[in-house]
Amino acid sequence: MKVADLSQRDMAGQLTGKGLPIQIGPFWINLRSTIPDLLRHVAFFYSEYETTESARFFDFHITLKNAGGLRRWVKPQVHFLLDEYAPFKPLPYIHAFAMFEWGLNWCIATTAHRYLIIHAAVLEKAGRGIIMPGVPGSGKSTLCAAMALRGWRLLSDEMVLLDPATRAITPVPRPVSLKNESIGIIRDFSAMAEIGLAAKDTAKGTVAHLKPSATSIRLAGVTSRPHAIVFPKFRAGSRTRLTEKAKNSALLEIQENAFNTHILGKVGFESATSLINSCPVFSLEYSQLEEALPIMERLIADSEVPA
């Protein structure tokens, strides 16, 4: 049963009551909130996700609630609670939905240690996955959003869940987080882009989300295999250029970009090494999406990419 199968009133009733179960990739969350922006966020972005009516085990019980006290009347704030524990300082009320997405990232990154969790976008075409690790400003999210709008299956815009033994990637498709200029770029890029409310003046500037395709959500249970790793680097005015990247520096960057290397230790390091040995690694410098996208297509078409 999907969230969309609930009436608006039932959905709101559950969110404001005992909680709305949502399956997000391999995780089940139980979400509670009375904040209207968050209700709209869930209705818009999570309608295609599975929910359930039966009692079950939840990976995360998440509540977003107004910070109480007198502050409520002056600068209203919102708390993110994992069960009863508040891992973060509260944020301005209007950032509630962004806080939910960040908070859920944090829940996954600090708990799902059955995977090596790499901070990267991952998309798939023809059964072939491309991993795009990215530091802020690398243009990873913009490229990821553009690929998702051109028919690539979105596995994640934020975290690769890699099985250390088999190297299978478990999808955890979520709204793609866009920042600042990216929001306009993606709006202009495709008339099909469904973009939610913008949260202004967050720690990361203005943030808005792109809705993933229904197919990506429907296929969340189907794992993928890495076909190539591409480190994108957006540089205004640059010529689009794909170059092979040294394995040692790729490994160093993967380690730095992984959320749980310190937990997985040797197993994580060996799995990152084997990931890098299993597929070619590139750097992609680009300034134009329309030039970068065909390169990604070519990588997929080429089954004999030099490893």
Binding site: F57, D59, H113, R114, I263
Partner: peptide, 12 residues
């Protein structure tokens, strides 16, 4: 479900 969380805690 719980087993994943218990193993993760053990790993930590």
């Amino acid at each position: 479900g719980p087993a994943h969380h218990l193993r993760a805690a053990n790993l930590i």
